[in-house]
């Protein structure tokens, strides 16, 4: 498993754990009220689990297992994928800061733009690796 995949998958596991912790608190709060401010964390629960966990895990696994080239660099344009990792996680951070009402709407826009940029960069990296055994795209 390459280094970038290890970073992405470990980050995804951290988001899974954080997301399920928030989700667990929300569910418990639904049954036995704990604190009225807890519902404000619902969008963060969703952000962590959909973007931080599912999307990031898929990207990390794709970087690892998609077909590699015969010649070096075996994973082409890997820098784009590394940049995608940083952009995605900065994006999640900015969106989270907004969702917790610690910042204004520009943070949300910047965060979503970073997430979109991350996905486009990752897609650019992965596109050429989505091929048949004969190398047909």
């Amino acid at each position: 498993m390459p280094r970038l995949s290890r970073w992405m998958i470990r980050a995804a596991l951290v988001y899974l754990w954080a997301g399920i912790t928030i989700g667990g608190l929300l569910l418990a709060h639904k049954g036995v009220p704990l604190h009225p401010a807890l519902w404000g964390w619902l969008p963060v629960h969703i952000e962590f689990l959909l973007i931080g966990w599912v999307a990031q895990l898929a990207m990390g696994v794709a970087f690892w297992i998609l077909p590699r080239y015969w010649n070096k660099p075996r994973r082409p344009r890997a820098r784009l994928a590394y940049l995608a990792f940083w952009l995605l996680n900065v994006g999640i951070g900015l969106v989270t800061v907004y969702l917790l009402r610690l910042a204004e709407r520009p943070y949300l826009l910047a965060g979503r733009a970073a997430e979109v940029g991350a996905v486009l960069l990752f897609a650019r990296h992965a596109w050429g690796r989505i091929v048949s055994r004969e190398g047909l795209g």
Binding site: T21, G23, L27, A28, K30, V32
Partner: peptide, 10 residues
């Protein structure tokens, strides 16, 4: 029961 469910899943 929801507290129990949350704890089990967590």
């Amino acid at each position: 029961l929801l507290v129990g469910s949350a704890l089990l899943q967590w």
